[in-house]
Computed example of a mutant assay.
Amino acid sequence: MRRIRIAIAAPLVLGSLVLAGCSSWGGQNDNTTMDQMRKDEYKFGSLLGTDGGLNLFGGNKRKGAADAGDPNGLGVNSYLWRASLDTLAFLPIASADPFGGVILTDWYTPPDAPNERFKVNLYILDRQLRADGVRVSVFKQARAGSDWRDTAVSQETAGQLEDAILTRARQLRVAQQAAK
């Protein structure tokens, strides 16, 4: 029993010592002002770049976002993003990442077909409003007794969803440009 207590307490004590030792690890003394710390921060830059983001392929991230019609800095085309959310509004959204351009829905059972359920994974692939800028995968399951079994979904279904999203994105773009 004593060995167990030592085995549990030793990592806790060691972790506390490491954490306490790291608190003064930056080398900053108490006389350093916040302004000086900010100047040092700008002098050396940030781990994620000067604009706070990680840009692996070079170029100006903000410029690319503005070119795509997105002043808010989304990682994908804002028209495609909003059109995707509008088109998939009837499905329960499980996850939505506006910077990666991924929308994952949860299973949805239509009221008129209680033995079927659908799920959609949507990927926005580009910052430009293009016909190949969105990819949709549709999954369908049918009830077999008390279990759900995967069934085939035609490629036409995903294509129709993609077309509906692209049509809505064009409508949003035209409406925004007409408002200017």
Results as ranks from 00 to 15, higher is better:
Leu56Gly: 03
Val102Gln: 05
Gly159Asn: 13
Thr105Ala: 04
Asp35Val: 13
Gly64Trp: 01
Leu91Asn: 01
Ser137His: 13
Gly53Tyr: 09
Asp97Arg: 10
Val120Arg: 04
Leu56Thr: 08
Leu122Val: 03
Asn121Gly: 07
Ser137Lys: 14
Phe90Leu: 11
Glu156Arg: 05
Arg173Ile: 03
Ser146Cys: 04
Gln177Asp: 13
Arg135Leu: 12
Lys119Pro: 15
Gln128Ala: 11
Asn55Arg: 10
Asp106Cys: 01
Val76Ser: 04
Asn55Met: 08
Leu56Ala: 14
Phe118Thr: 08
Gly133Trp: 02
Ile103Cys: 07
Ala65Thr: 10
Lys140Pro: 01
Asn31Gln: 14
Gly26His: 14
Gln141Tyr: 00
Arg2Val: 14
Phe90His: 09
Glu162Met: 00
Leu12Ala: 14
Val174Tyr: 07
Leu166Ser: 08
Leu88Ile: 07
Trp107Tyr: 05
Tyr42Arg: 15
Asn121Phe: 08
Leu56Ser: 05
Gln36Leu: 06
Asp97Val: 10
Ser146Ala: 14
Asp51Glu: 13
Gly69His: 03
Gly15Cys: 12
Tyr123Thr: 06
Leu12Gln: 03
Arg173Trp: 08
Ala131Asn: 12
Asp35Phe: 13
Ala94Val: 06
Trp148Tyr: 13
Thr87Val: 06
Asn121Pro: 00
Asp126Asn: 12
Ser46Ile: 00
Ala83Tyr: 00
Lys61Ser: 06
Tyr42Gly: 08
Pro98Cys: 01
Leu104Arg: 15
Pro71Cys: 02
Asp51Lys: 10
Ile103Ser: 05
Gly45Phe: 05
Arg168Phe: 01
Gly59Lys: 05
Ile165Val: 05
Pro98Tyr: 00
Tyr79Ile: 03
Asn55Lys: 10
Gly52Pro: 09
Gln171Gly: 02
